[in-house]
Amino acid sequence: MKMNARIMTIVVLVVLFGGIALATALGLWNTENTRTPTRLEKGDAAGEYGEYNPEDIRGSYTFTEVSKFFEIPLDELRLAFGLPEDIDMTVFRTGDLESLYGDQLSEDQEIGNGSVKLFVALYKGLPFPLTEPEYLPEAAAEILKARGNLDDETLAFLDQYTLQVTAPENAEAVEAVQAEAEEEHTESGSAESVNGNTTFKQVLDAGVPEERIVEILGMEMPNHILTVKNFCLENGLPFSTVKGALEAEITGE
């Protein structure tokens, strides 16, 4: 049987686009990481089973996504983190906060994705470990206190880790601050951060011994090609704590 170019073209197009259509119908056509946070499991907190887990808020989430997933009014988030009125919340990511307050923070202080996790958890009354320093702007702490659902331990934690900071006054100023931070980051050639894409292989390559990783995880050394984040999520470990410990090992602090 002979096959001419026209028929072959039709077969090629049908197989490619038909295959994609079929995969889409079967839910197999995913072109990006799932952007839905994991949900709290049984035993995480009484009565909160099935809620989205604030610990799984990623630095790539926009504030609009956080608002949608956790049903927190966007204006409340804007106010809490001092974001200018004209900033596009569908684009501005929680991880972008890290560069927002520039030189108002000391070296051991950070307002970033971790701060959003803390704010969301306390706002919604969801579980969150108060074991590591996690800083919030004063406005965020005031909003949480005004809701009146915090216990004494949490109030004390907030008092200890609340910072008086001022965000840039408009979107243009935010962009300028971010550009400056990006430039500094590039110049310093920093490779010291552990993010959602970092694998154990990269942590090992950064000079952290395997024994130390095992110690931090409290588990056997995982497959090197796994990302730290996925491993933590699958094994119920707090990613922020593991990330902090690994970063400290990498920087030698």
Binding site: G19, I20, A23, L28, W29, N30, N197, T199
Partner: peptide, 16 residues
């Protein structure tokens, strides 16, 4: 799991 930046769509295309 998938290698960083790779998703189900790549595997579907590889099969096709």
């Amino acid at each position: 799991t998938f290698v960083q930046k790779i998703h189900e769509s790549s595997v579907v295309l590889a099969g096709l």
